[in-house]
């Protein structure tokens, strides 16, 4: 369980996060939703110990953040994180060099699933395929938690479908998944937990299915209430 307790973050004078708490459980797909600039990426960075917080606590399965964390969590940021002159295979080899949790068999599956060519150089790939490489490098790790930052942003509709399939596939089975997105449409059916961020706070945290059952509202309906009302 990733436990985020009362985290605060400030950029200069601007308060970005103002007391945010929530948890991410194993076997669930959670989604941080909010308009751009609301601090979604900051939260992911904070979980990965990539940005200091003003205050608050983050623990992974009850443990503090250290470099051994990266054997438990994979983060797939919204930026290419392999070297541009590397090809897909070299990128995978790099991961295999450092991560005990690198699962080569699974990596092979993903390459096949995404129809990637291992000898393609990253700087020659389309944006969609670069996003796929990023997913590949994160999903092939045998880790308990996966964080994804805006996995659909700026990606064509076919790639988007492929990525959506990932969420209901064995690739994320039994893992705790946390995604950030401002485009909920494609993945609404896939989510367990939805966390709505607004003005540095959690506006609403709910289970999508429960919301449909008890209030008859879709996630988009709730978002509309928040951001329009």
């Amino acid at each position: 369980m990733i436990e985020i307790t009362d985290i605060h973050k400030q950029f200069g004078r601007k308060k970005v996060l103002n007391g945010v708490s929530f948890t991410v459980n194993k076997g669930e797909i959670s989604c941080l939703v909010g308009v751009n600039g609301v601090g979604k990426t900051t939260i992911l960075n904070a979980i990965m110990n990539l940005t200091p917080l003003k205050s608050g606590k983050i623990s992974i399965d009850g443990e503090k953040l250290t470099s051994s964390l990266y054997n438990k969590i994979a983060f797939i940021p919204d930026a290419a994180i392999s070297l541009p002159h590397y090809n897909v295979q070299e990128s995978m080899d790099f991961m295999a060099d450092y991560y005990d949790t690198w699962n080569a068999r699974r990596a092979k599956d993903i390459v096949t699933f995404f129809r990637l060519n291992p000898s393609d150089k990253l700087h020659d790939l389309s944006k969609g395929n670069q996003a796929k490489v990023n997913l590949l490098l994160g999903l092939a790790l045998d880790v308990d938690y996966i964080l994804m930052d805006e996995p659909f942003s700026g990606i064509d509709v076919f790639t988007r479908e492929q990525i959506t399939e990932v969420f209901s596939s064995y690739l994320v089975e039994d893992r705790g998944v946390l995604i950030t997105t401002h485009e909920i449409n494609d993945i609404e059916h896939l989510l367990d937990k939805v966390i709505l961020l607004d003005e540095g706070k959690i506006y609403k945290e709910f289970n999508a299915e429960v919301m449909r059952e008890t209030e008859g509202k879709s996630v988009i309906d709730v978002m509309r209430e928040v951001y329009n009302g």
Binding site: I29, F167, S168, S169, H189, L191, D192
Partner: peptide
Amino acid sequence: RQLANQLKINPN
């Protein structure tokens, strides 16, 4: 898992 994947919904 198979059904979730077929229907593109959450396995839960």
